[in-house]
Amino acid sequence: MFLNSVVIVLREVLEAAVLVSALLALARRIHLGQRWLWLALPLAAVGVALYASFLAVITDALDGAGQEVLNASLQAGVYLLLLPILVLACSAEGRRQWLTVLMTLAITCAIVRECAEIHIYVRAFAALGEHAAAVWAGSALGMGIGISAGVLVYGALRAMPQRWALPGCCATLALIGAGMIMQATMLLEQVDWLPDQSPLWDSSALLSEQSFVGELLYAVLGYEATPGPLQVSLYLGCLLLAGIALWWGRMGRVKHAVQD
């Protein structure tokens, strides 16, 4: 129970922590402030509470596929919000209000997605008295590892040389976004909304998904030891789209500079 708690909480917290870290580092780089984070946290808390309250309704919806479809939608939503964030962050100054709104929504979606799962898991298993200590200890350990890794990712992004700081933050966000799409496809495959395909490769012998590095790469890159062709295609397509968004934003900045 302890180990299960660690793995479940770590997987969810790590993903949200790395996303928050990358957005925080990006906001610092473009002098945006942290208002979006303080707006997102209460919104996410309300979202998690609503998710947990209507869990039965969500689970029964869409012939029992409701929870998976909602989670996949939240993850896809995060990716779709990250695209304009990348464009605006790389383009000229201004449009700060839009960035604030987009970042608030992206963080809210990500935290609702990740924390709702943790909330449901911990509430269900901690109620079993004999396992409560293991569940709480495992959750605390998983949360500690996840948040610490997020803080260190933030530190690494902030420590980057000025020249590489913005590309570094944007590349991390692009990878996280593509990873979220990868996870969303897995969820939709689970409920047969997408066809189950035979894996292109099996790298579990090289790097287990359950190892710490495997979990970290799952959170940052959407690492999957046995990905299908659809997952790999979508992942690469999303990365390409993020690359186009970055290029578009950069072109906007160059155009702005020339006009000035």
């Binding site: 500690g144 590892i145 803080v151």
Partner: peptide, 17 residues
């Protein structure tokens, strides 16, 4: 302090695991 606590937590928790 933030970075050191994070590094200490990460290393000690992974070691605990």
């Amino acid at each position: 302090v933030t970075m050191l606590v994070a590094a200490f937590t990460l290393v000690s928790f992974v070691a605990a695991l």
